Computed example of a mutant assay.
Amino acid sequence: MTMTPAQLERFTARLQAERADALARMAGSDSAMSEVRAAKAGGVADDEHDPEGPTMTQEWSQRTAVLADVTAELHDIDRALARIAEGTYGVCTRCGKRITVARLDARPTAELCIDCARLVR
């Protein structure tokens, strides 16, 4: 069963909203990383012996990980939006079968049907 135009429109709107949210989180992450970078460069905090909180290295690592997660999320969203534009959204990229609407509701960036997703784990 192919996806209806209304379903495609719903998924497009959802993915675009998720993209806007991810871009906002990325902007916040960039700002937070700039703060940590400035604190490290200015020698404002003792990077190794601050008993009151995390070290600058910890802060940098955490914020870098958050930025990497958001970047990957944006990549997945953009690929899903591209599949919608190409007319291949909802088709498993591995086996070519339809991805169920229920799976796409749970994970709108899914590229694999549930059977193929189980195989790649």
Rank of each mutant, 00 (worst) to 15 (best):
D30C: 12
D76R: 13
I99K: 01
R94T: 11
R98Q: 15
A102G: 13
T88K: 05
G28K: 05
E52H: 11
L112W: 05
M33V: 01
A32W: 08
T55E: 08
G90D: 02
A17H: 12
D69S: 14
Q7Y: 07
C113D: 00
G96L: 10
M33C: 07
D21P: 01
L104R: 03
G43K: 06
C113N: 01
G90P: 01
L67M: 15
D69W: 07
K40P: 00
S29W: 00
R103K: 08
T12Q: 13
I114R: 11
E35V: 12
Q58N: 00
E52G: 12
G87E: 01
C116H: 07
A72T: 11
R37I: 08
R118P: 00
M26H: 12
R83P: 04
A39E: 15
C116Y: 05
D30W: 09
R118H: 02
A41H: 06
Q7P: 08
A82C: 11
D76N: 11
L81T: 07
T2K: 08
L15S: 06
R83K: 09
D76C: 09
A24M: 04
T109W: 09
P108F: 03
I99T: 06
R98A: 15
F11E: 03
R118W: 02
L15K: 03
T2E: 11
I99R: 02
A27K: 13
E86S: 12
A17K: 12
K40Q: 05
L74P: 03
T100C: 05
D69N: 14
A38W: 06
L81A: 07
G87P: 03
T57F: 10
R63W: 02
R19Q: 15
A22L: 08
D76Y: 02
I77L: 09
A27P: 01
H49Y: 13
I114K: 09
H75C: 13
L23Y: 03
R10E: 00
K97Y: 04
I99N: 01
A27E: 14
A38Q: 14
R25I: 05
